[in-house]
Design a protein around this nucleic acid. Structure first.
Lengths: 211, 211
DNA sequence: GTCTATACCAAGATAGAC
DNA sequence: GTCTATCTTGGTATAGAC
């Protein structure tokens, strides 16, 4: 990988900018970490990359989070929290549209902050790590429980919903979107997985999209 | 089911054993690599681990495959090949059982050699790496093409089949099976995803099964 | 609160003996 | 064909200045 990381400009504040409250700094780093971990995975990312993306020094990231593992766990926790919150909002909302469809939409919407679902996905694959693996597993089950108990899905429906989510993650992870225009099979598979084509542009556009 | 899943002890031949043909050695290392990469992912694995699992020296692994990346690509290629072959066998077979069900069974059967599907899964998540990511993406599309063109699935059916496969991979990756007995939700989700409970024992039993 | 400098280790890769 | 020894790089984490 010759390239340095991640998308566009570092999130850093300009050098002379007024000091921000440390809570905000923390947020900033967590957001950067979400992107980086989402792109390269837990082991594949370096704390230096995260620091660079956040516009702070690498030792400072360490200072704030202690270890890379703790940082990743926080990223996972936030990602999971965001996902659950989005689902709960949809469950609570009064609408004529079928709930399954709305939850699907909520899921796909989260792809606009790319790192979130991808970080989760990377967590799911880390079963070999006792700490991270256990955490991710619990998270997956939490989502399942929500679908079944709060959304009222049957086990089979919940399973199918999760399954589609995993395929979506995988397709994002493999950058299959890059083949959307050139490879008919890729396009077909993408269109079959995504609830409606409109949402695809959210994904396609990355940070650039305007709805 | 050729069946020798990799057992726990190193695969090394006893020190004084007769020399094996180099092709066999290569096979041995590739099998070991499949297990290791499946367990820890591409970045998370070391060539030293692979070497240890195969009972050879780390530099020798390098000598044989050149780079860690090339080794992983060979692992991916073999895994993909095995999967496609298993599916094609099922497509060709004459049976009353619905093809979708048989393909599902074939997929689950592959879990007995754990590393195979997990290695693939790890490849799918590596979209950030231009070489590996591209390779994995092509592989995923190849599977899709098989389902659609050779198995005669509709795009929607193919998508759903793949999706379930991804969820299965994820559940294996997170070691969710470990919670099968203790966590009812885990059990429910596992049972919803796996075509029939019998096959669960294939997974649960790891290398012990005889079928 | 945030940086620079650096210690320390692990991992991929190479050299070269047998 | 396979090993031991080793070079090199890069990444986490710490020390400590400002």
């Amino acid at each position: 990988m010759s390239g340095d990381s991640i998308p566009n400009p570092p999130l850093s504040a300009p050098k002379g900018a007024p000091r921000m409250r440390s809570g905000d700094r923390r947020e900033l780093v967590l957001e950067a970490a979400t992107e980086v971990f989402g792109a390269f995975g837990y082991v594949g990312s370096t704390t230096g990359q995260v620091a660079a993306a956040a516009g702070v020094s690498q030792p400072y990231v360490m200072r704030m989070f202690g270890t890379k593992e703790k940082l990743f766990l926080e990223v996972l926790g936030r990602a999971l929290g965001a996902l659950l919150a989005a689902f709960r909002t949809e469950v609570a909302r009064d609408s004529e549209v079928h709930l399954g469809r709305r939850l699907g939409g909520a899921y796909v919407s989260m792809l606009s902050q790319r790192g979130v679902l991808l970080s989760l996905m990377h967590g799911f694959v880390l079963g070999s790590d006792p700490v991270i693996g256990a955490y991710a597993r619990a998270g997956l089950l939490e989502v399942y429980a929500l679908l079944r108990d709060e959304a009222g899905f049957s086990p089979a429906q919940s399973q199918q919903f999760l399954a589609t989510g995993m395929l979506v993650n995988t397709m994002i992870g493999t950058r299959m979107i890059d083949e959307f225009d050139t490879n008919p099979a890729a396009r077909e598979l993408l269109e079959a997985a995504f609830p409606d084509t409109l949402n695809l542009y959210t994904v396609l556009g990355g940070s650039e999209h305007t709805t």
